[in-house]
Design a binder for these strands. Structure first.
Lengths: 348, 348
DNA sequence: TTTAGCACTCATAACCTTCAAGTGCTAACA
DNA sequence: TGTTAGCACTTGAAGGTTATGAGTGCTAAA
């Protein structure tokens, strides 16, 4: 258990270091704290804090910087309880979410851009997901010139369309027959079942009406893929350049690679079990070696029967936790409202 | 006019510098050239070349590097006439373009990726454009839940679809009426006319059938926008990190910004008037200050009545011109074949 | 428990030295 | 006239030295 003075010192170190980026020495702390003790006393306290493992030195005679455990302690116990969100920030958030959107994708994509701009870090988002999305509609629209547009609708409200080419001797009746097959057997099924049957029994059925069903099946598969997996958004990738050590360009490339991999990121973003509004993972708490110098803040938003999604901020371990946590929390709130509002229109 | 020996020396300097990145001295040149003159003679020749402005020093006592004019001279007069394209490269190109594609976009996007991988530079591409694309088809497909999918088809074969929401009291007849308006008045018109009328007389007509036509008009506009402007592809953006001076992260950000601006890039890519298969712009020949340390190679491909497009490579001025020009030329050829083949299917 | 005092450590920057690569010039040579 | 050897000179890069300042840990006294 830390004494009050030790807490004060740790807090000051975190604040000063995240702001300036320089290690903090005992004299600086005396100035900052307006506490009436000498620097020697502070030094003694710092020695204790270092022993506990909450702060560390960059080299023998340097000032102290927070250790990962130090950040953790700060986030858990020392940051301001009622986190302040600047009025400016809040109105920016509201303004950016205002306006009419045709797709959820737009709202989410816009959110990542906004979040990354507000924080100068990198923002991630995952669309609202419900556990068992089902295929709720299917159309084939002939466009002329042997082109057909396939349209998939899911019960989560997603619409995916993709064109494909058919042989010139394919008639409208044949297309209708295919639509009937899909409607009878696949509509109403969970997407994963649809995906599976697309690989097993459906092809043979289609073959009766379409000599070369590959184009159609591929199209269908791709659209399905998009409907299930294209739910991951990244904003402000370039901000990585600002806060990553650029010495090694391979690392940056690897990072970019990582950021485009939905499944990896999804796993990493799963929140801690601590029931806080914003989950904070610091350094090696993130399950990926590439990110051991980063922190990941995640907030889960809930839009009722339309599922839950996540928004997250990826920044350096020495990020401004108070501000960023506050911002993410506020954004989550506004986004939730916006989405509920958006869906209301379709739900009646 | 350069003597043969001067040409030889300039060529050697360009080759050595583009390969190693180090300035080339007189002794190195003696080794490379297996010419039976002394380094002093070479030095004299180099002094002449510098006077002419084809090579330059990095500092008083350094070896020489090509000046922009030097690269230009090399490209115009010294590079191998029959540029070699490695068998490996060629088969890679063919392989990457092989396979079936549902959209031209996929072919082009894939091409930029391939080109950037093969060259380790950044690749750009513009889809085939015809001067006067017309709207050739329009549909509205109700999807249930107050959602409607608008589908636009152009006579260049583009298909764009976008969903939008309608009030719950809108009937099928109303939608049909709208389709009729569009079919009667807009289908067959050039896109720019469509775009214009969308801002003038169409809204009033739509209002007769739709109380709040904003959603529809916005959707239509967006889809049109995409059909006309979403034709620009970039591959291997990250390669910029390898060959740009990373000292200044702002510059990298600015570059990225620039690369996402279609119109700017389009203008820069316009080929020189020299009737070569691959147009080469070196350093300040590119009409943008940000790119004054880069070279831009452009090849125009022609797919008959489906228009022309461009593919391009953006790399450092000290790029390997022979190889890259060869590669881009070969790629252009293969891409043309592939596209002709692709369109043939629809043209009959 | 707190503090003043002090010896010690280390990163950083400034300065110097050395080294290798390269140049330009001159004078001699074919 | 073109070529060459020779040489003094320049320069960036690498390595070494030194001074400086910010900081530490420890000791002994208050």
């Amino acid at each position: 258990m830390l004494t009050d003075r030790q807490k004060l010192i740790l807090q000051a170190i975190v604040l000063a270091y995240t702001e300036t980026g320089h290690a903090v020495g005992s004299k600086k702390l005396v100035e900052m704290l307006s506490i009436s003790v000498s620097s020697a006393t502070i030094r003694n306290e710092m020695a204790t804090l270092e022993e506990i493992g909450l702060i560390q030195k960059e080299h023998t005679s340097s000032g102290r910087i927070p250790s990962l455990a130090g950040y953790r302690y700060y986030v858990d116990h020392l940051k301001h309880r009622d986190i302040l969100v600047g009025k400016n920030d809040l109105s920016m958030i509201r303004q950016s979410l205002d306006g009419s959107y045709a797709k959820v994708d737009e709202i989410i994509a816009n959110s990542t851009n906004m979040l990354s701009e507000l924080t100068s870090y990198t923002a991630l988002a995952i669309k609202p997901e419900i556990s068992d999305v089902r295929l709720s509609g299917f159309r084939l629209v002939p466009l002329g010139n042997h082109q057909v547009l396939a349209i998939l609708v899911t019960d989560s409200g997603e619409v995916e369309s993709q064109q494909f080419a058919i042989g010139k001797d394919v008639s409208g009746e044949q297309l209708e027959a295919i639509v009937r097959i899909v409607n009878d057997q696949l509509v109403g099924q969970p997407l994963r079942v649809v995906l599976q049957r697309l690989l097993t029994d459906i092809p043979t059925q289609i073959t009766q009406y379409l000599e070369t069903p590959d184009g159609f099946l591929q199209t269908f598969g791709q659209a399905l893929d998009r409907a299930t997996s294209d739910q991951f958004f990244v904003g402000g990738r370039l901000n990585l350049l600002d806060f990553s050590s650029i010495d090694n360009p391979t690392t940056i490339k690897d990072l970019y690679q990582l950021l485009s991999n939905k499944t990896d990121m999804h796993d990493m973003m799963l929140p801690n079990q601590d029931n806080t509004e914003v989950s904070v993972k610091i350094g090696d708490e993130i399950a990926n070696d590439l990110l051991k110098n980063y922190s990941l803040l995640t907030a889960t938003y809930d839009v009722g029967n339309h599922g839950r999604g996540m928004i997250a901020i990826l920044g350096p371990t020495r990020m401004s936790y108070s501000r960023t946590i506050g911002l993410l929390g506020a954004f989550k709130q506004e986004l939730t409202n916006k989405l509920i509002n958006y869906y209301q229109f379709y739900d009646e």
